[in-house]
Amino acid sequence: MKVIFLKDVKGKGKKGEIKNVADGYANNFLFKQGLAIEATPANLKALE
């Protein structure tokens, strides 16, 4: 799953980066902790 990092995550990505991560990692950790959002077309456009 492609995500946009909202904060730096050690060993995974930095704020503003768009990366592929495992679905479970994104859903169970990144999204719940507010560290990333899904890289949907709307979210990508808002990032610009």
Score class of each variant (00 low, 15 high):
residue 15 K to V: 09
residue 12 K to S: 13
residue 8 D to E: 09
residue 39 A to E: 02
residue 29 F to V: 15
residue 35 L to Y: 13
residue 3 V to Y: 00
residue 2 K to Y: 14
residue 20 N to H: 14
residue 17 E to Q: 11
residue 39 A to P: 02
residue 43 N to A: 11
residue 8 D to S: 10
residue 15 K to E: 07
residue 25 Y to W: 09
residue 21 V to H: 02
residue 45 K to L: 14
residue 25 Y to M: 07
residue 15 K to Q: 11
residue 27 N to C: 11
residue 16 G to C: 07
residue 19 K to M: 12
residue 17 E to I: 02
residue 17 E to A: 06
residue 4 I to D: 02
residue 19 K to T: 08
residue 45 K to N: 09
residue 10 K to L: 13
residue 48 E to D: 11
residue 20 N to K: 13
residue 40 T to V: 04
residue 25 Y to A: 04
residue 12 K to L: 15
residue 21 V to F: 07
residue 19 K to V: 14
residue 44 L to V: 10
residue 20 N to M: 14
residue 48 E to R: 07
residue 4 I to H: 02
residue 1 M to K: 10
residue 36 A to S: 01
residue 40 T to A: 03
residue 45 K to D: 07
residue 1 M to W: 04
residue 40 T to D: 06
residue 47 L to Q: 09
residue 38 E to T: 06
residue 16 G to W: 09
residue 43 N to Y: 07
residue 3 V to M: 02
residue 46 A to W: 15
residue 12 K to E: 14
residue 35 L to I: 07
residue 26 A to W: 08
residue 42 A to Q: 11
residue 5 F to I: 02
residue 46 A to M: 13
residue 17 E to W: 05
residue 47 L to E: 05
residue 25 Y to F: 12
residue 42 A to C: 06
residue 15 K to C: 12
residue 45 K to Y: 11
residue 19 K to W: 07
residue 44 L to D: 04
residue 37 I to S: 03
residue 9 V to L: 06
residue 23 D to P: 15
residue 8 D to Y: 08
residue 19 K to A: 12
residue 42 A to P: 07
residue 47 L to Y: 15
residue 36 A to Q: 00
residue 15 K to Y: 07
residue 46 A to Q: 12
residue 37 I to L: 05
residue 4 I to S: 00
residue 14 K to S: 11
residue 16 G to E: 01
residue 4 I to K: 00
residue 28 N to G: 13
residue 9 V to W: 03
residue 29 F to P: 03
residue 29 F to K: 06
residue 18 I to P: 01
residue 22 A to M: 10
residue 34 G to L: 07
residue 10 K to A: 14
residue 17 E to L: 01
residue 28 N to Y: 10
residue 1 M to A: 04
residue 6 L to Y: 01
residue 29 F to G: 04
residue 6 L to M: 08
residue 14 K to V: 08
residue 14 K to Y: 12
residue 48 E to A: 13
residue 43 N to I: 10
residue 8 D to N: 09
residue 13 G to H: 13
residue 14 K to W: 08
residue 43 N to R: 05
residue 44 L to M: 09
residue 24 G to E: 15
residue 32 K to C: 09
residue 26 A to F: 14
residue 35 L to S: 03
residue 33 Q to N: 15
residue 26 A to C: 03
residue 3 V to T: 00
residue 38 E to H: 08
residue 29 F to W: 11
residue 23 D to K: 15
